[in-house]
């Protein structure tokens, strides 16, 4: 059952990414290009997502377990360390360079052969990067 719900969550997530414009690298870079071709659309993506997730999380926090009886894996870390800031800074550089972050790159992968070929290059490199980071964690 939890496999099905995870799959459905992934599917909704991907559909959301496609509708939102996050899978279009030009749109992502235009969002980041405040002094150029600025397209503020993507602020609405984060706004819309948080507007749903924040109240939802608030109510889930009051429960002791999930609706399928699993344990909540709420992140527990609160420390601000160099790894957090350095990692986020690196991620930003890569995001700006390619116009892809992990979710949209994966979502756009199935159509990489017929339209935007970017994920074909981006995704394998990203997996290598994540693997290296995990091995050094």
């Amino acid at each position: 059952m939890n496999l099905i719900t995870a799959l459905i969550a992934g599917l909704i997530f991907g559909v959301g990414l496609l509708f939102s414009g996050m899978t279009n690298p030009a749109k992502v870079q235009n969002f980041l290009d405040i002094f150029g071709l600025w397209d503020p659309s993507l602020a609405f993506v984060m706004g819309g997502a948080i507007a749903v997730t924040a109240p939802g999380y608030y109510f889930l926090r009051k429960r002791t377990g999930t609706f399928l009886g699993a344990k909540f894996q709420w992140p527990t870390r609160t420390d601000i360390d160099n790894r957090l800031v350095a990692g986020a800074a690196m991620f930003g550089v890569g995001w700006g360079l390619g116009g892809f972050c992990p979710g949209p790159a994966l979502t756009a992968l199935p159509f990489a052969f017929e339209s935007v070929t970017g994920p074909l290059w981006f995704v394998p490199a990203m997996l290598v990067g994540l693997g290296i980071a995990k091995a050094n964690n």
């Binding site: 550089v93 390619g98 992990p102």
Partner: peptide, 12 residues
Amino acid sequence: AGLVVGLGTGTG
């Protein structure tokens, strides 16, 4: 970009 995103998100 992919490598940097992977390393960065993995580290952060």
